[in-house]
Structure formats: C-alpha cells, structure tokens
C-alpha cells in the first residue's frame, strides 16, 4: 500500500456551515477522514449526522465552507462513492429481486438506458457472493430478513467498486447476533474501501471501528488511540460498547 499521508484524504470537510429553515444544523464543521479509515459518526437525533452524510454524497449543498470527497466536489465524486441508505426508508413490498436491487448499483448516466450487460450481471452476482448472499439472488427483497436485506444493499453499493463506502444506520435493522458477523463483513470490505458509518446514539461500537466523530451541530473527532484507551479498556469489553443516552459519556470530554 502507498503511504496514506501522501494522498488526499478520502473526505475533507473544512469550516462547513449548513442551516435548514434558518436553523443552524452544522456549525463551522471540519473533518478529515483518511483513505482506508473505518470511521463511525455518532450523535443524537437531529444532531446533523444525516445532514453531514448527505453533504458528503452531494445531495445537499452547504451554506458556507467546503466538502471534498477524494479531492473532488461530492457531485463529481458520486460514481466513486458507494451508499447504503437507512433500511426503513425503503418499501419492503416492492416487487424486486435481490439481483435487480444490486444491478441498480451499475446504473450510471453515461451508460445509456438499454439492458444490463453481461458484465453488469457478472459483477452483480460477484457482489452478492462477496456479502454471502449469492444463494438469495432471485429472492424477493421483502422475503429477506433485516440483516440479509442490509447485505444486499451493501452489495448494491459495492458493485460499482467504490473507493468510499457510506452507510446510514446500518445496524439498526440487524439483531444482536447478526451484528458481529456484519462488522466482520465491513472489516473485510475495509481492506479496499474507506468506510464512514452513521449510527444513532444508542449504538454499539465495535472494535473494528478505528475512529469516531461525534456530531451535534459541531463535530468532535476521536482518533484510534483514544478509542482504544478510553473505550475498549475502560469497559473491559473488546466486542461492543453500548453508550446509552449521551454518547459522549464513553469518550473524553471535549476540550
């Protein structure tokens, strides 16, 4: 691998402001995510996590400041970003198979609107195999469990071979037993992509997570060292730490 320090960061946000209906949601936020990092964004509901994520995706424009993904404006970087939305926003009754969901990840405007190519289908099957969902390719999406559906959505994000993978509250629909497996999958994917994951404040922080950004109008970044010292050792639980209520309780107080 090349030296990470010499590359541009995967995500570079500088002095960014965003307000919604006159209310400041993000205030003078700066955040850098290095390539290859596995970062979790936590914070209370309405604290601006999803807003920040949508700015990274280019779905929202900041009022002031700058967001760059892979050195580009987010809209230009879009084809190189994989996105896994919140499961609850998706219609589970929709008549579509797992394979067709994954094929959506192969859409790109320059490729025209005809049929999917053989390569598209091959890549889609490959992506499903990668998340151990190959056997379910012709199942309807509504027949799958929450965890299986989440894997299919990850395959859809990964099928375009992105460099950054952004997930919005991926573990809320997975039962506790499935979560460990799910993190192992993310860790395996982390070999090739930078991961940014949003979680709500009652989250489980897994040992694979390298850094944490607390988002509540402003952003506090906690690097790898701090998590190890403060979180994993303190709670004597290497697998998961649940921060009930105020997430900042498990971290050092912000200076």
């Amino acid at each position: 691998m090349t030296d990470r320090a010499e590359e541009e960061p995967a995500i570079d946000i500088r002095r960014l402001w965003f307000s919604y209906n006159g209310q400041v949601v993000l205030k003078d936020v700066s955040l850098q995510v290095a390539r290859g990092e596995f970062m979790a964004m936590i914070g209370p509901n309405g604290g601006g996590k999803t807003t920040l994520l949508k700015i990274m995706l280019g779905l929202l424009e900041p009022d002031r400041g700058e967001a760059r993904v892979l050195g580009l404006p987010p809209k230009k970087a879009a084809p190189r970003i994989g996105y896994v939305p919140q499961d609850v926003h998706i219609n589970k009754e929709f008549p579509i198979t797992a394979l067709d969901v994954v094929l959506m990840g192969r859409l790109w405007k320059k490729k025209g609107w005809g049929r999917y190519s053989k390569e598209d289908r091959f890549k889609a099957h490959q992506a499903l195999d990668q998340v151990q969902m190959g056997a379910f390719c012709s199942r309807r999406i509504g027949e799958l469990s929450g965890g299986q559906r989440q894997r299919v959505l990850i395959a859809r994000a990964m099928v375009s071979s992105p460099e950054v993978l952004i997930l919005d509250e991926p573990i809320s629909s997975i039962d506790t037993r499935g979560q460990a497996e799910f993190y192992d999958l993310l860790k395996a994917l982390n070999e090739s992509v930078t991961i940014v994951m949003v979680s709500h404040d009652m989250m489980a922080l897994h040992q694979h997570v390298e850094s944490v950004a607390c988002v509540n109008r402003d952003v506090h970044y906690h690097g790898a060292a701090e998590i190890t010292d403060e979180m994993l050792d303190m709670y004597e639980c290497p697998v998961e730490i649940v921060a009930h209520g105020v997430p900042h309780r498990v971290l050092k107080s912000h200076k």
Binding site: L57, G58, L59, A78, P79, I81, Y83, P85, H89, I90, N91, F94, I96, D100, V101, M104, G105, L107, W108, K109, K110, W113, Y116, R156, S160
Partner: peptide, 17 residues
Amino acid sequence: KGFLAMSYDEEFARLRG
C-alpha cells in the same frame, strides 16, 4: 431502469446519475 430505480429508491437513483 430509470423508472425502476426512482420508484425503488429515489435517493440512490439520484446518486447513480
């Protein structure tokens, strides 16, 4: 394909151009 993607997941469809 566009109608399908829009109907299933509008936001994702937008991101895929």
